[in-house]
Write a protein that binds this DNA or RNA. Structure first.
Lengths: 127, 127
DNA sequence: TCCATAGTTCACAACATAGGAACTATGGAA
DNA sequence: TTCCATAGTTCCTATGTTGTGAACTATGGA
């Protein structure tokens, strides 16, 4: 079984970060890890974003996050301990992670309030 | 020929923005548009990132940026006038675009200086 | 009317991604 | 020790996404 790959902080790229976080599932996982004080295992996220995510898919999402340099994963017995690397990334790309997490927050707040009011956004026409 | 699609500001998603900017060519195009005071046509970017980009590929990149809500394109005679929509986006997702552009700047600065010194980063081992 | 220029669309090849099934690694119980 | 349960990973394949050349469209000017 191949060993876990963690890029060194200098090999982390902006493109990699943006690509990893452009997926809603990965963004949700990462947001939760970044907020959480303690490490979390993968299975905690089998129902993130209110959908059942197959284990294999989840595993690939964790791999994407890991290889983009966003999280660190360590085996602890039978589980995985996942933590975010946000403080390292903050050093190299100041403000980036905060702005992205904040934008996701803005967006989900709007989504919640519009569904409560009857999903007005869903029918708004494009130009 | 299908009309140009511009999402309304409320339909712009973070995922869409991140995905669009996770491509180096699109990021370079967008950075240049965001910096530039005046509108620019597509052909100005046929050599962005020091590579020849086929016209058809470039056209799709502009379409991605447009449909992600990052730029606005208008036909002016035989050319296209492309401008960035950063002030709109700044309203909705404060700090996001600035942080991303800044991160790209950080990264390209490092790349430049490491190539000058003999590409030390290229051989640095991963964990 | 014709041409040149700027972009777009189409078709297809190459690459990336999702998910089920089979697998591996670890810790604990018998 | 051996066996089992749990947590993740890998493999395979079907489905999407993306890049590119060739053919096309739209516009302005000769």
């Amino acid at each position: 079984m191949r060993p876990l790959v963690h890029p060194s902080i200098d090999d982390i790229t902006v493109e990699g970060i943006l690509h990893a976080l452009s997926d809603p599932v990965r963004a949700a996982i990462y947001a939760e890890l970044a907020m959480s004080a303690c490490a979390q295992n993968c299975s905690n996220f089998l129902q993130v974003t209110n959908r059942d995510i197959p284990k294999s898919t989840l595993s690939l999402h964790f791999r994407s996050l890991r290889e983009a340099g966003l999280i660190r994963s360590e085996r602890r017995g039978v589980e995985m301990h996942n933590t975010s690397r946000c403080s390292e990334i903050e050093q190299r790309f100041p403000g980036l992670i905060g702005a992205i997490l904040n934008a996701h927050r803005v967006q989900s707040t709007e989504r919640d309030s519009s569904t409560r009011q009857g999903a007005s956004r869903a029918v708004r026409p494009h130009v």
